[in-house]
Design a protein around this nucleic acid. Structure first.
Lengths: 338, 338
DNA sequence: ATAATTTCCGTGACCGGTTACGAAAAACTG
DNA sequence: CAGTTTTTCGTAACCGGTCACGGAAATTAT
């Protein structure tokens, strides 16, 4: 038995107070033109005075819309994604639902989203590779935008060119004179680690260099990414691999690597150079400050939400795949090898 | 004009298919006892087959409940809070709404929450000091739990004993032999920084020591906390303050401080000791690993959600204020002064 | 076999909005 | 000023559930 919530005034209460019919109040609510200017303000004043707020349940029932946008995050737990998105969603007058899921619970999550009459879905699923038609049919017709780099999808997505990002890193290291470039990355069934791994491998090969050792680990939280970075270095050293530079999957992994290298008496960048991805805020506060690839997540979030909102409003929306181009931010963690 | 969403089967569609009345389907849905076992399974099978999901809008309209819990975060932008909470909310069969706000937009946020028939609110507002009755009246009768340490509130909250936390830090440093203990903390109109500042000040005084220099700055995002830590140290050094230890508001501030000290040629812990709060995952990967106060946020989140759920179900719920006791995690950033 | 219970289920009213329809009032026409 | 058009607004039906009420069927008692 839920605690008694306030009984909120309804449109009929407002109508009575304002001396009009509930239909008129509804028209005022939806700013229909067919209502006289003075009655409009009269009704608005009464709504104001009574603290009227239209009941979402009732509105959902008739309009089949909820004014809700759901952010679904799959397989990872970066709290970061959310607030930045929510800001744009709020600004457009929607509220933000948040759900985390895995591949197994994905269908269920989408079902409840449909039952909630969610108006749109922002999907961040860096591991999900699902054919368009399957994804669409799971969505029950709810517009969806992916905040990922999904080359094989014709649906709307916004992502960063990972091949280019990798090239920035590898080329920078090669230009500095590195020949033995190791890699610490995420599990290769994640999209980005896979693309970067392949790009790294091919770039090395085409330059006539042997790809250095590679370590993959969990990077689905910051804590795990740090651990992966740490373990990667330990593993390399234990195996006696030789390398003069490491490319890490993100700045937190770099932080872990830094820590492990330090423990083993190796100096960065004197003994080993590190270049990573993301340019998270921590990058410039690490010792040494990290050379890293800057992904403008703000733009990504903004575009993803914007595309979703457009898609919600426009019944014959043309899907676009938007590729963002990252930049390299050169700080001090990568220097010529000794 | 929104894109055509799937037309979902209704309770009457299911009834027709199953050869019963819609009332019976409703009873099955809500697992009322007055329905024969075999018709129950028959209806369930049909629901299954048709992929029936009850329409939330309709349900909200009649029950005045939404199965939605809203997390409201005020004045800060730590994405971290959310996912941990959401997990417990999900487990209880609710969905999570997320909203950020400021003091100005707080009332509006609560109004839309009420319009959405939100069943409960988890409030994380480390700056908000609002009398109980005012807070309650803003809430339109929606149960609310604060994930904060709010000594002056009789409503339900879950927080960490900040005075104790501070004592752990200060006493540890004093025990190591430090006498000049500086503080880098957040703006003092935040609850925790204020409490810690006062505790630090009083502890020093009662031990006959002069409180060291104090710097306050923005710590409402990780990036800003790092900057505050960095600027704090720079400021101390510029002013020629003397100190042998610093207490920082959180691990990210400590990281910023570490970076600034390093730039000025000061070693941690050789020249300066650092102790901070939170025991974020980064603490053990910093160089040196941080001595820091461990707050078990997992417990906090769990209890906060649990109390909220209890409050939602129990009409005459007795508010409780739950105080959690933090521990000190000793690593290497604090050592006796030279 | 009939009456008294008990079990199960169909019906109708309602929740608070939206919207199509049409009527009344106002404004315009000649 | 009657006739026509336009503006404004009231009414009813509906969205898809919930729930109280009461009747039919099944069960038990007499």
């Amino acid at each position: 038995m839920p605690k008694q919530k306030d009984k909120r005034p309804t449109i009929r209460d407002v109508a009575r107070q304002a001396g009009v019919s509930y239909g008129t109040v509804s028209r005022v609510l939806n700013s229909h033109p067919e209502v006289a200017a003075d009655t409009r303000v009269r009704v608005q004043r009464v709504m104001e005075k009574m603290g009227y707020q239209s009941n979402l349940g009732a509105r959902m029932l008739t309009t089949n819309r909820s004014n809700l946008i759901e952010i679904i995050v799959m397989d990872v737990h970066f709290g970061i994604v959310l607030p930045r998105m929510a800001q744009y969603i709020d600004a457009a007058g929607y509220s933000t639902l948040y759900a985390e899921c895995t591949l197994e619970t994905f269908a269920h999550t989408l079902n409840t989203a449909a039952a909630r009459l969610v108006d749109g879905i922002l999907l961040y699923a860096p591991k999900l590779q699902m054919p368009d038609d399957e994804l669409l049919s799971s969505c029950h017709g709810i517009p969806i935008v992916r905040r990922d780099y999904v080359l094989d999808s014709k649906l709307t997505w916004v992502g960063f060119n990972q091949e280019h990002a990798t090239r920035l890193v590898v080329q920078h290291l090669i230009d500095l004179g590195h020949q033995q470039i190791a890699e610490i990355t995420g599990s290769l069934n994640f999209i980005n680690p896979r693309l970067r791994h392949d790009a790294w491998f091919n770039l090395m090969k085409t330059q006539g260099l042997e790809p250095g050792p590679s370590y993959t680990g969990d990077y689905s939280t910051f804590a795990r990414a740090m651990k992966t970075g740490y373990m990667g270095v330990c593993e390399f050293l234990k195996r006696g691999e030789s390398f003069t530079a490491i490319m890490t999957v993100n700045d937190y992994a770099a932080m872990g690597a830094l820590s492990a290298l330090h423990e083993h008496g190796l100096r960065v960048p004197d003994d080993v150079s590190i270049v990573s991805f993301d340019d998270d805020a921590i990058a410039s506060y690490l010792i040494p400050p990290l050379t890293t690839v800057y992904f403008d997540f703000d733009i990504q979030n903004k575009l993803a939400s914007q595309f979703l909102l457009e898609q919600i409003d426009d019944p014959d929306y043309k899907h676009h795949q938007h590729v963002l181009i990252p930049d390299l931010v050169i700080r001090q963690s990568a220097q010529p090898p000794r």
